[in-house]
């Protein structure tokens, strides 16, 4: 399917500077890697799909019921067990939770990133911190919240700390990656002028980092908003997620779920607009 050699040659303007041509050997390696990965994925999928449908399962009935519920959700949203104001408050809680965890996470992660970028830190520190963060990242947010609800008691403290954990681990990696992309020449230049490390960080690294710092932090905010909802539902940590969980698995009221989903979608739309604006600002 994928044959890089057979591709039609595309007339483009020749870029200035030396042209990079990948030796055939490497192109082959890519092709083989992609093909092998696709084969493995296809095999796993084909083997798994049939085993997923349990015996005596009425797929047709399930599908009908599913479309019915989707219809109820989107076409007949209305409230029964709670009020709109309550839901608005719950949505606000989830947004605050996402905001607070992103703020704390981005501040802490910035320092971890400084200590784990190849541009500034010794290799053992880079490897140490990045492996530690990989382990933290590997544990799903909801497990962190569950664990901390036992230690701190169920509530805001557990939710904030739990979500922050994952945020720090994620942001440390992406910030450090952004710093790694900085040309080593820049830092060398500052060192050649005799600048101290603190001055190099403030005067050289931060100015370059700002655009990617903002966009990654914003992406993390979107993730944290989704996590705040999930955690509210799965760990009973409150917010719109908890309401969603109650309506769908306690009252089985999909009309109400519809209202909440619309509210969440409205906020997501706001975020999308902000992210669009942010991108056009940082990309100038």
């Amino acid at each position: 399917m994928i044959k890089p050699e057979n591709q039609v040659s595309i007339p483009t303007r020749i870029p200035a500077g030396p042209r990079l041509s990948i030796p055939l050997r490497f192109r082959d390696r890519r092709r083989v890697t992609i093909l092998l990965t696709l084969i493995v994925l296809a095999y796993v999928t084909l083997m798994t799909l049939p085993t997923m449908i349990p015996n005596h399962f009425k797929l047709g009935a399930a599908l009908v019921s599913f479309t019915e519920n989707i219809k109820i959700m989107f076409l007949q949203p209305h409230l029964a067990n709670t009020t709109f104001v309550t839901l608005l408050g719950a949505l606000g809680q989830s947004i605050l939770l996402a905001f607070l965890t992103t703020l704390i996470g981005s501040a802490i992660a910035f320092f971890f990133a400084l200590a784990s970028t190849r541009r500034l830190a010794p290799t053992y520190l880079v490897l140490g911190i990045q492996s530690f963060m990989a382990v933290i990242r590997a544990i799903p947010t909801v497990l962190w919240v569950l664990i901390y609800s036992v230690v701190f008691g169920l509530g805001a403290n557990a939710a904030v700390v739990g979500i922050t954990f994952h945020s720090v681990a994620y942001l440390t990696k992406v910030y450090a990656d952004s710093m790694d992309e900085l040309s080593p020449g820049i830092i060398e230049t500052m060192q050649a002028m005799g600048l101290k490390k603190s001055a190099i960080i403030r005067q050289a690294i931060i100015p370059y980092l700002i655009p990617s710092y903002l966009s990654w932090t914003f992406i993390r905010f979107e993730i944290n908003f989704a996590d705040a909802i999930a955690v509210g539902a799965a760990a009973g940590a409150g917010g719109i997620g908890y309401q969603l969980f109650m309506s769908s698995s306690f009252y089985f009221n999909f009309h109400e779920v519809g209202v909440m989903v619309y509210m969440i979608l409205a906020f997501a739309l706001v975020l999308e607009i902000i992210s669009y604006r942010l991108r056009s600002v940082t990309h100038q």
Binding site: N69, L244, F245, S248, V257
Partner: peptide, 28 residues
Amino acid sequence: SSLLRNIPIVAWAMILLFSFKQNDLTGF
């Protein structure tokens, strides 16, 4: 695609759970 992405996974899980019951297909 924006709609699919922004509907919280909790909502997906719950609606699907209602129709497909407690099995792997729901998670899938």
